[in-house]
């Protein structure tokens, strides 16, 4: 590790430490907002780990998230709570592996189509099983407060950043960047493209399931339509795109302003949320295709070339 790596590590730890102090304010509204930011931050960052370098757009976040909430919902009476998020991670990872094996050997379009409807399909199956067994939803009653959920999510965030940092320095991370640039070149260099893609897709799958499992106590009552909301997949893509996927810190830079903006929108225009979400997304795709990261790099490059002239 170089001195720069150490610096970044210490900086990250300090920022997370400061963020962890938020519940001490005792402001319930701020903490609720903090939970949202932490949740979207973790989801968007892990999403970008795979979709950033490969350019394969995953629309399946809601599916894995929903599976995670259902792990908590159905396991809370049987297992101690602390066992559930890891279990959700394993199940989410396996599911992502299966989805990856079925679609990632083929072109990107198949992957997008498959992930587009995955949440809806799992929702149908869960609803069907529930109807067959006769109960519609389930209660998750724990003594966990918003503060606990917040701290748990920050812990996952730390893990995701460490994982992202490690992947960025690994052969796997390098292989994924090559695949994202030119898949044919990648395979002619000796990279097993399918295995690399599936291996990395497991990460956001597992993380989204863990987050779902941790958020479940917040919902208290869980039914398929709340657990598998397609809006979630969409929000995660928007926020990650807004921040930019080229850097590890990109998505969180998109998550914070967007979550705040979203707060304003859902309070002031409760009936137009979907419309405004769609319009925001179009604006980002057209005006900021590389997000804040891209904007930052452009300004940086311009500053550098100016220096060179002087």
């Amino acid at each position: 590790m170089t001195t720069r790596d150490w610096k970044n590590l210490v900086l990250g730890a300090v920022l997370l430490g400061i963020a962890a102090l938020l519940p001490l304010t005792g402001d319930a509204y701020a903490i609720a907002l903090g939970v949202n930011i932490a949740m979207y931050g973790v989801l968007a960052t892990s999403w970008a780990l795979f979709s950033g370098p490969t350019h394969y757009i995953s629309l399946a976040t809601a599916a894995f998230f929903g599976v995670g909430t259902y792990v908590t919902a159905s396991g809370i009476d049987v297992l101690p709570y602390w066992a559930l998020p890891p279990l959700a991670g394993i199940i989410g990872g396996i599911l992502a592996g299966i989805v990856g094996l079925a679609t990632l050997r083929l072109s990107g379009v198949y992957f997008v189509i498959f992930t587009l409807g995955l949440a809806e399909m799992i929702r149908q199956i869960v609803t069907w099983r529930q109807n067959a067994t006769g109960h519609k939803g389930s209660y998750v009653l724990t003594d966990l407060t918003e503060n606990h959920i917040y701290w748990q999510l920050l812990g996952v965030a730390a893990l995701v950043y460490l994982a992202g940092w490690a992947i960025g320095r690994s052969r796997l991370g390098f292989a994924l960047r090559i695949i994202g640039d030119d898949e044919q070149v990648a395979s002619h260099l000796g990279i097993n493209t399918a295995v690399s893609k599936v291996a990395l897709f497991i990460v956001p799958g597992a993380v989204a399931a863990i987050v779902g499992a941790m958020i479940a106590p917040r919902y208290i009552y869980i039914e398929p339509s709340t657990a598998f909301t397609p809006m979630l997949s969409f929000q995660v893509v928007i926020m990650a795109m807004l921040g930019g996927t080229g850097r590890l810190w990109g998505p969180i830079v998109g998550v914070i302003p967007f979550t705040l903006l979203w707060e304003v929108i859902s309070v002031s225009f409760p009936n137009q949320t979907t419309l405004l979400l769609g319009l925001c997304f179009l604006l980002i795709v057209y005006l900021l295709p590389n997000g804040f990261v891209g904007l930052f790099q452009k300004i940086h490059a311009r500053a550098l070339s100016k220096e060179a002239y002087q």
């Binding site: 990107g108 795109m241 419309l275 769609g278 319009l279 997304f281 795709v285 295709p289």
Partner: peptide
Amino acid sequence: RGMLEQESILTTFGLSFTMVGLMLW
């Protein structure tokens, strides 16, 4: 072609939410 595919997926995905939003409204 790959890049067009990816951009058209993103754009039309945004468009679909916009249209759903309009119809809901």
